[in-house]
């Protein structure tokens, strides 16, 4: 458990440090109440709120990423035991990766990595 204690302490210390900075800011800022301003729009009043249904054009990439990323679940435990299990584990994993990589190459040919 002591490993977790160290992590918890680190979190605590970091948060305390940030809180200290906030306190220092409060003491030294020329005013404490936040200025509520319109967002910067080249000198204009923003015509619309920026928070909107933002079209992230790279969304096809996210799908490929998620498929490939699930593989990482297996990758770390595999890394620990591969030396012990020998050649078969290497082959199995790289066949797996090869299949996924083929998918990635296909996606590339389909133009999934271009968006703008």
């Amino acid at each position: 458990m002591s490993a977790y204690l160290g992590l918890a302490m680190s979190l605590l210390v970091a948060v305390a440090g940030v809180a200290g900075l906030y306190a220092l800011h409060r003491l030294n800022a020329v005013a404490n109440n936040p200025l509520i301003s319109k967002p910067f729009a080249s000198g204009w009043i923003p015509e619309q709120h920026a928070l909107s249904r933002y079209h992230a054009r790279y969304y096809p990439v996210t799908l490929i990423f998620l498929a490939f990323d699930v593989e990482m679940l297996f990758m770390y435990p595999w890394a620990v035991v591969v030396a012990r299990l020998g050649a078969s584990a290497v082959i199995e994993m790289f066949v797996f990766l090869g299949v996924l990589m083929a998918g990635v190459l296909w996606a590339w040919r389909e133009g999934a990595f271009k968006w703008a």
Binding site: A41, S42, G43, W44, E47, Q48, A50, S52, R53, Y54, H55
Partner: peptide
Amino acid sequence: LDVLKVPLGPY
């Protein structure tokens, strides 16, 4: 999806 009108410039 949403269209955002954003003026670029002058400042």
